[in-house]
């Protein structure tokens, strides 16, 4: 497609695309100047973001890696006179009995229960059912689900804390129908926080899948129906393949969100009882601010960063394959 050049390249010369402009532009000084100017404009526009991201994300990121190699504590002699101790923190973390492995397993549990089952799968079911609902139900129930997502996380934690507490609404309700209730926050802390997180987060996957499902062409479904496919077969062989990318994107994004989650668990159980809901993010906090070992806590943060990096990498690959990162040059 032919396109006019941008105003940086004086005159109305017509170029095919950016590549051609770059090729021919390099040959003439005027073009060179224009390209420099264009780059300058671009750089000026990106500059504010570059500065703020480098200053407030880049440097703390480097500092995280540096601190994790020291023995800095909150209090005690090493609070101010800390030394580099190489990889000692990591050796201790990966030695048995550190609790790191338990925390990673709990994080994976939280991921599986609250993200994959409670949000992705449940969100898909909700979106699928919702397409078959009356407009009123769609509007009302859809709004309720979204409101759960919009409520600040600390409020969600507070409501679920109150619901599940000893003497809370759930106990009262179960008691009324004659079912005994053991305080879930204590007897099943991971289930408690997973239920709360699913309740809060399912809207995201629900919205994503609703949008994708409504884009599935009706003809394809009709064609499958004509071929004698039942509802399950239509879902499996027509709808899910069409939604493959959306599903992958959803998985990666909720994985990252759930791994980074701290507030809900910290407020509801504090990682307890004992260490029974001490997911990685809470483990990190406990080591740094409760047992006062800042550097050791930071080393466990690096483990969290590394796990997050793996999923970010998967995300980028997915987006690239999908073409979302293709550049118009």
């Amino acid at each position: 497609m032919t396109r006019l050049s941008d105003p940086g390249e004086h005159g109305g010369s017509v170029v095919a695309n950016g590549n051609a402009a770059a090729l021919t532009g390099a040959l003439r000084p005027a073009r060179l100047r224009a390209r420099t100017r264009r780059r300058l404009t671009g750089l000026t526009m990106v500059a504010p973001m570059l500065v703020i991201v480098l200053a407030f994300l880049g440097w703390p990121l480097i500092w995280t890696l540096v601190l994790s190699l020291t023995n800095m504590t909150v209090t005690g002699p090493t609070a101010t006179h800390y030394q580099f101790i190489g990889l000692a923190n990591y050796r201790e973390l990966f030695a048995s009995g550190s609790g790191l492995v338990q925390s990673i397993l709990l994080s994976l549990y939280y991921l599986g229960a609250s993200a994959y089952i409670g949000q992705a799968l449940f969100g898909f079911v909700l979106a699928y059912l919702m397409l078959r609902c009356t407009t009123t139900v769609r509007k009302v129930v859809g709004s309720i689900i979204i409101v759960c997502w919009l409520v600040p996380e600390i409020i969600a934690a507070w409501m679920w804390f109150a619901m599940l507490s000893n003497g809370g609404t759930l106990q009262q309700g179960l008691h009324a129908v004659g079912i005994p209730y053991q305080t879930w926050l204590v007897s099943h802390p991971m289930i408690s926080v997973s239920v709360a997180n699913s309740w809060r987060g399912v809207a995201f996957s629900f919205l994503l899948f609703s949008a994708a499902l409504s884009d599935v062409p009706a003809e394809l479904i009709d064609a499958a129906q004509v071929d004698g496919a039942n509802a399950w077969q239509r879902l499996r062989s027509v709808i899910i393949p069409l939604l493959a990318t959306t599903i992958l994107v959803d998985f990666v994004l909720i994985t990252l969100g759930t791994l980074n989650d701290f507030t809900l668990i910290f407020a509801m159980t504090g990682g307890g009882p004992g260490t029974s809901s001490n997911v990685l993010s809470v483990f990190m906090y406990q080591q740094a601010f409760v047992t006062f070992r800042l550097a050791y806590g930071t080393a466990s943060a690096v483990v969290l960063l590394a796990i997050g990096a793996v999923f970010s990498f998967i995300y980028i690959r997915t987006l690239r394959r999908q073409g979302a990162l293709n550049f118009a040059r």
Partner: peptide
Amino acid sequence: FGSRTQEYFVYVLVFLTGLPIIAIMIPT
């Protein structure tokens, strides 16, 4: 303005999207 540098820049951006902010709070 598509260019190689900008393509990598976008990769970095997407990568940072997945950064666990909680992990860098102590050093911050």
